[in-house]
Every structure is written in C-alpha cells, then in structure tokens.
Amino acid sequence: MADLGYVFRRIARMDFGRMFKVIDKCHNKCGRNKVSLFFDCVFTGLIYGAGYMDFYQFRMYDMNAKEKKTVITRGVNNSIVRKYNDKKSIYKFDDKIKFNEIFNDYMNREWMEVKEDNADDFAAFCGRHAEIIVKPVSQSCGVGVEKILTTGEDLKALHQRLFKNGQILVEEVAGQHDAINAIYPLSVNTLRIVTLKNQVATALFRIGNGGNVVDNFNHGGMVTRIDVDDGIVKWPAIDKDTNVYEVHPYTGYKLIGTKIPMWEEAKAMCVEASKVVPEVGYIAWDVCVGKDRPCLIEGNNYPGYDLYQLPVHREGNMGLYPHFKEIMGDD
C-alpha cells in the first residue's frame, strides 16, 4: 500500500475540480461509467500511490491489479527520490550555475554566468559564439530558455536585459550530430538517460516539434523510448496531447529504427557523472549527442517519471517498477 501520510497530504492539496475533468477524459477514452472510474482512481491512489494524472496518463483504468503494481507512480517515484537523494546535496543540481561548475568536464561546450559587472566578458563570449542559449538558473521544463542570434545585437543592452530577467546562464549552443539534426533541426533533441545507483535504468529520446526551439515534452515536444542495450528507438513517439508519431511531421523522418549515435559513449558518460555527487543516486541526465562526442546539458534530481512508462512504450502493459527494484536490490 502507498505511504498513507503522502496520500493524505495529496488529498489535502487536491484540486477536485481538475480531478473530475480528468475522470471525464478517462471516460472519453475508455467509455467506462464515471462513478466506477472515480472509485477506481481513488483506490489506485490509495494502493499504488498514483495521482489522478498518473491514472489518466498511464491509462491505469485499463490495467489490472498485477499491471498497476508495476507502474512507477508519483508516490513510488517520491519514495525512490527520498531514499537515494540527500536533501542537503540536491542544490548542486537545482542551481544550474553550480551544476555547470561541478560537471564542467562533461559539458563539452563553453558557458558563462552573466553578472552585473561583466558586460565586456559577455561581449567577448558573443564574439566567439554568434548563437547562444540563455537560461534562468532555477526554472525547469524549458521555462525562460531562449536561443539568441547575437549578430547585430546591442550586446550591452542584451547583457542588461538578461541580468534583469534572471537569465544569467549563457551557453554555447550545443551542436548536435547530423543524424539527430536530420530528425528535427530547430531544437537540440536530447537524450534523457536515467541512472539509479550508478546504473542506467531507462532512457528516452526527446524531440522538438511545431517550430519550437526546445524539445521539452511540456512545450510541444515529443518523446520516445530507447532500448538501453543497443541504443535503438523501437517505439513511436508521443506528445503531451497523446498524438502518436511513427514519422516526424516536420521532416518526414521515420522514427522507429533510429540508431542513436555514440550511444555507448553517452551511457558511459552518465554513469561516470552519476558518481561525482554520491549523495544523489537517482538522476535524470539530459544529453546532447554532439558532432563528435556527447555533451551533458543538465541533471535532474527529481526525475520526471511521467515519461518512463507511457502506454505506447510499454511491453505487455507493464511498467518499469520491477526493473527499478532489481537495480535497488535489498536497499
């Protein structure tokens, strides 16, 4: 059974209006009676630690008890985070400047911090890189990330704007491998490689879409699963609106069968990086497949479990919890 303390805290903060809208969506998907779905959703939350969005997104209304038990739900994911990620150390991942300092050896690109008094350094950086990526240091899900062409810009004014907006992390644009660029050229299409106890637990491929310059699932991107053993995409991609893609709509690229370049190097890099801060043992790494080597983009100390087990990527309607348990062993 799920941690009852966690369940009751979730109930106290629950948006019941949104929950009933989600039940409506479930009904539209499967045709089941809404009252039956409501009680199934509540029961699934109590027993398996699933939020109502888990219930909808993982189609748990179409799963039996044996199948539900295999899903990494919000409650299960939280328990793994609590077990392996020391609260006193997670700031090393939350603060993007601190992260870049610690993991600089794996970044494989130039970066700098915008400060009030370093406009000249910023101008020199832009002189070396005509195109830059700017990020706020504490946001997530692609919020506040911009790609800027600096040619012809008033660099002093741009420096002031970035400092004022808190977009103080400036990075050289990570050049991606031609094979990845061919799939969707407007964004850096990143790998999401999840490590648990210094082992690769699962891996995903995030791809931009719709003219967006970020590949984030919450900003119009799509995601598919990578076979960890051989680095091949064997499933279609899906976006947040549950549209499924076997072919990328922007380029016409066939997704299934894609072989990720330098896959073994990317895995090895993440395993090595996972040992740098041993107090944080459950990490989702975002990796760019560069032209000649993988580049670390960032590490997430609260891995987004919502992407792991989407129905279109499941085998036998089973989730990944049994596999994660194998890695955790007797801990």
Rank of each mutant, 00 (worst) to 15 (best):
E116V: 02
Y321T: 00
T251W: 10
D215V: 05
V247P: 00
I260H: 07
I238R: 08
V223E: 09
E172C: 02
G316L: 08
T73G: 06
N64G: 14
V247K: 13
Y61R: 01
D229L: 07
L191D: 11
A268K: 15
K115I: 00
Q167E: 14
K240T: 04
P136W: 05
L4S: 14
N243Y: 09
K34A: 02
R161P: 00
L310S: 07
G175H: 12
K68G: 10
K98D: 03
G257A: 08
A124W: 09
R82K: 13
I260Q: 07
D94K: 03
C26Y: 01
I148F: 02
D15A: 09
V194K: 02
V71C: 05
K275Q: 15
T224A: 02
Q160D: 05
V247C: 01
R206C: 14
P236T: 09
K66E: 13
T70L: 11
N218C: 12
F8V: 09
G210N: 15
K156G: 01
L307M: 15
D15L: 04
W111R: 01
N28S: 12
Y91L: 08
D3V: 05
N77H: 04
K197R: 14
T190C: 10
E101V: 04
K291C: 13
N218F: 14
Q309I: 10
V170L: 04
V289D: 08
T242W: 11
Y282F: 15
I80T: 07
Y106H: 08
Y84D: 00
I283A: 08
P322K: 14
V214Q: 10
Q139R: 11
H27N: 11
D306L: 11
L310C: 12
E272R: 14
F217C: 10
G304N: 10
G221E: 08
G31E: 11
E272P: 02
D95T: 00
Q309M: 15
N78E: 14
D62H: 09
H323R: 14
P185M: 12
A237C: 06
P294K: 04
F8P: 01
A174Q: 10
F38D: 02
T224F: 06
I327Y: 13
K234S: 11
W235V: 14
C270H: 06
K325V: 14
N300F: 05
V213I: 12
G152L: 03
H177W: 01
A273M: 06
H219W: 00
I47T: 08
T202N: 13
V233N: 01
V71S: 05
R225A: 11
M318T: 08
D3H: 09
V42D: 03
L4Q: 15
E298Q: 08
A12Q: 12
N218M: 13
Q176F: 00
M1Y: 12
V228L: 10
K240S: 10
G304A: 13
L296T: 02
A266R: 03
N189D: 07
I193C: 12
T242R: 14
F55Y: 15
I226P: 03
A201T: 13
A157C: 00
K96G: 02
L307A: 10
N243W: 02
N108C: 03
I72A: 07
L149V: 08
L204F: 15
F16M: 08
H248S: 01
K87V: 12
K83W: 01
A119T: 05
D62P: 04
A273C: 06
